[in-house]
């Protein structure tokens, strides 16, 4: 559905995209995962025809983003990172506006937004600027869907959103996918990668990896131990002890588990447990664990 080849874009001296190549299949949820400055927004703006690339190409459903920009605009729904609806129009007026701009009506495609818009319909006469964060998000999604796009492009829809609303939002995306809409979504939350069919890990304008979340996790080949400190007030001390341990490569906190990797494959749970015990850390659980997206991301970051 989306094809991108060797795409480059610079802002003056600053290279935002350094040759991006990726394909998004029809009907999948594809995630662009990376921190601020990775190039996620630039890539999306080129796809929605708001920016011109310096080099390379991008097509959506076979249409070129530069030559066929008018046609592409009718096929793509875009939700920018910053709330961009008309704050001085009401909820219903915003929706009406976006439907008619594309030459349609709200009624014609209401089935697409029923589940989402239904939740904010009781506030249909409220000004968009007076909505809460979660409601604004639902209205913005409704407005980007009302012309029945084939592709939905969402720029960090869950940034700054609490864990519960984030979960609800991903459920909405899943429902849309079942209606046949292809979704390209960006996020700085690594855990959301697991909710996508495939993801590209982005850093400084380059792709670190593209695959399914499961295969990306499996690409982490080294042994990793997870250390859990029972008395949490000793965790900081334990992290520092592990950093000082011989043969240790990396030590990172992941919630209540400390992830540790080694230069030597023969260091195991028993050696680590004995080392910590010797340093006065008796209440620790050490076991071998498998890596997650963040582990892989950090490993790839350091390699590049």
């Amino acid at each position: 559905m989306i094809r991108i080849g060797n795409l480059e874009k610079s802002y003056g001296e600053q290279k935002a995209l350094k040759g991006i190549t990726l394909d998004v299949e029809n009907g999948e949820i594809f995630g662009l995962i990376g921190p601020d400055g990775a190039g996620k927004t630039t890539l999306m703006r080129i796809l929605v025809t708001l920016l011109l690339p310096d080099k390379g190409f991008a097509t959506i459903n076979g249409l070129d983003v530069v030559a066929d920009f008018r046609k592409i605009r009718t096929m793509v729904g875009y939700m920018p990172g910053r709330f961009s609806l008309y704050q001085d129009l009401t909820v219903a007026e915003n929706l009406q506006f976006f439907a008619t701009v594309f030459g349609g009506t709200v009624e014609a495609n209401y089935h697409l937004i029923k589940d989402i818009y239904g939740q904010i319909e009781p506030f249909r006469n409220r000004l968009a600027g007076k909505l809460s964060g979660g409601m604004k998000q639902k209205l913005a999604l409704s407005c980007s869907l009302i012309h029945a796009p084939k592709v939905l492009i969402l720029d960090e829809p869950t940034t700054g959103v609490d864990a519960v609303s984030r979960k609800e939002f991903w459920e909405m995306l899943n429902n849309l996918r079942h209606k046949g809409i292809t979704i390209l979504v960006s996020t700085p939350y690594m855990d959301e990668a697991n909710l996508c069919d495939r993801v590209a890990l982005l850093q400084n304008g380059s792709i670190l990896s593209i695959d399914t979340p499961a295969k990306i996790n499996a690409s982490f080949k080294r042994k990793m131990l997870g250390v859990k400190v029972v008395n949490t007030s000793q965790r900081y001390g334990c992290v520092n002890l592990l950093k000082e341990m011989k043969g240790v490569d990396s030590v990172f906190s992941f919630g209540d588990v400390i992830h540790v990797t080694f230069h030597h494959a023969d260091i195991d749970e028993i050696i680590v447990r004995e080392y910590l015990f010797g340093k006065g850390q008796q209440d620790v659980l050490v076991e071998e664990i498998s890596a997650g997206i963040e582990d892989v991301f950090m490993e790839l970051m350091q390699k590049n």
């Binding site: 990376g34 921190p35 601020d36 940034t159 700054g160 700085p188 690594m190 850093q203 900081y236 992290v239 990172f252 906190s253 963040e294 991301f297 950090m298 970051m301 350091q302």
Partner: peptide
């Protein structure tokens, strides 16, 4: 107030190292 939004996972962790140090 949401001090670590938008940074890469490595930076987020070194940032928490600073927080822990200050707490100590």
């Amino acid at each position: 107030d949401e001090p670590s939004g938008g940074v890469d996972p490595l930076t987020r962790r070194t940032f928490w190292d600073l927080i822990n140090e200050a707490a100590h």
